[in-house]
Simulated assay, not measured.
Amino acid sequence: METKRLVLRPFQIEDAKQLYELAKDINVGTNAGWPPHKSVEESRKIIETVFCQDDQYAIFLKETNELIGAVGLSPDTKRLNPCIKSLGYWIGQKFWGNGYATEASKRVLIYAFEEKKLNGVSVVHFSINEKSKNVISKLGFVYEGTLRYASRRYDGVELDDVEYLMDKERYEKVKDDLWRE
């Protein structure tokens, strides 16, 4: 999949070194709930076990072919409905503030509703993650609620989950904005 500035494609083992360079940063994984990667080998294993699943995409800059993050759809662990998936994304810190998470997520939402014909897409952020909240707001999700102390991060910190949903009806209302680059 492509956008104006980005290429979204499945991860490949060859991406492990670039993934490690981004994922070793404590500020990247901590906001998403996972520990910093400790080695290229660990990043390779993450590609083989996590990023190998369906609908998981590496995000590359078209201009430089540089890996900048990841985006994807996963089963929604809080809903038993297989026609609703959960959107996840992260961007390497040196690429923050450029709108890449929003741009990549727009493309995945279009794919989710237009090609996969999902009934809905959920998204969650920790209450401490304002950057993710801003992305979700730009995408047009509807706030559903906050689950207090819903997650325990890898370092033992308990965090609130802030929950949002975009169903088919909401998608129809915002899809013109999503298609606009």
Rank of each mutant, 00 (worst) to 15 (best):
A70P: 04
M166Y: 02
E103V: 09
R153I: 14
N98S: 13
E181N: 11
C83Y: 08
G156Y: 03
E14K: 15
A150E: 12
D177H: 06
E14G: 05
K117F: 10
Q12F: 10
L139V: 01
E115Y: 14
V162R: 01
G99P: 01
E41M: 00
K38R: 10
N119K: 03
T64W: 05
F113T: 03
L73T: 00
D25P: 05
S43M: 01
K106I: 03
D167L: 05
D25I: 14
D176I: 13
N134C: 08
E103S: 07
K85D: 04
T77P: 09
Y100S: 07
L147I: 14
N31E: 14
V40D: 09
V40W: 07
N27H: 14
E169A: 11
A58R: 05
R107F: 00
Y164T: 13
K138A: 12
K17D: 09
S127N: 00
E63R: 02
R5N: 14
Y171F: 15
L19R: 01
F113M: 11
A150H: 14
I136Q: 03
K106R: 11
N129E: 12
K17T: 15
A150L: 11
K45P: 06
R9G: 04
K116S: 09
N65C: 04
A23C: 14
Y171T: 03
E169D: 13
T49H: 10
Q12D: 03
L6A: 14
A32E: 05
Y171M: 06
G97V: 10
R153P: 10
V123D: 03
W90K: 03
V157D: 00
T49A: 02
N129D: 12
D25A: 02
I128S: 02
K62Y: 02
E63A: 07
D76H: 02
K85V: 06
A112R: 01
L22D: 10
W96P: 08
V50T: 09
D76P: 06
I136K: 03
D161T: 00
N119P: 08
V157E: 00
G33P: 01
T3Y: 13
I91R: 02
R148E: 07
K116G: 02
K175R: 15
K45V: 07
I13R: 07
A70T: 10
I110L: 15
L22I: 14
K106M: 09
K4A: 02
F60T: 15
F95D: 12
K4F: 08
C83M: 08
K85Q: 12
T3K: 10
K78P: 00
T30M: 08
F11W: 03
S137E: 03
D160Q: 12
A23R: 07
E66I: 08
Q56Y: 07
D155I: 00
A58V: 12
K117G: 05
E2W: 05
R9L: 04
I84W: 04
P10W: 15
